[in-house]
Design a binder for these strands. Structure first.
Length: 152
DNA sequence: GCCAACGTTGGC
DNA sequence: GCCAACGTTGGC
């Protein structure tokens, strides 16, 4: 069992949007960064858990938990020439980009904000807090996962 | 391979 | 909107 943090701008896709579609298959698609792609393709396993993080908004922070319901497979949105995640270099034989499926587990009782996370020395090694970190998918160590949940 | 120009992310 | 910190592109 591994833990992850996955970012989304709530104006694009929020945790409530995920809840509204619970019961349906939700693709975590559109990731177009090679480091994040490698995690989606090679590391993230079915039944891993992930924090849902709201980025680029009034109060950036962790808002919920999701479960990976399907491990990495080709992101077909790259093949749609009219979609905003289109990549002309992709073919079915050479997918280049990958996605996973996710389903909501639960919303946190409150948002655990980025500002709050920064206050805890226990989290100085947390990938989210590293200088210049912009990855939209980050690993979370078990002790970091448990520490953050204990803040709730 | 170098590197300048450009694009993106995301906090503030 | 600003801007730091990356990542990508493409000429050479």
């Amino acid at each position: 069992m591994q833990y992850w943090l996955m970012k989304s701008e709530p104006s694009e896709f929020s945790y409530d949007d995920l809840l509204a579609r619970s019961g349906q298959t939700e693709h975590w698609d559109g990731v177009r960064n090679y480091q994040a792609r490698n995690m989606l393709r090679d590391q993230i396993q079915q039944d891993d858990l992930a924090f849902f993080y709201h980025s680029n908004c009034a109060e950036p922070g962790i808002v919920g938990i999701m479960r990976i319901s399907r491990a990495g497979y080709p992101d077909h949105t790259a093949l749609d020439p009219l979609g905003k995640h289109s990549d002309p270099a992709c073919t079915p034989a050479n997918p280049r980009w990958y996605m996973v499926d996710v389903q909501p587990v639960r919303k946190l009782k409150r948002t655990i904000s980025l500002a709050e996370l920064k206050n805890h020395p226990e989290l100085t090694g947390f990938a989210l807090l590293q200088r210049g970190s912009r990855l939209s998918i980050l690993p979370v160590l078990p002790e970091q996962w448990n520490f953050i949940l204990a803040l709730e």
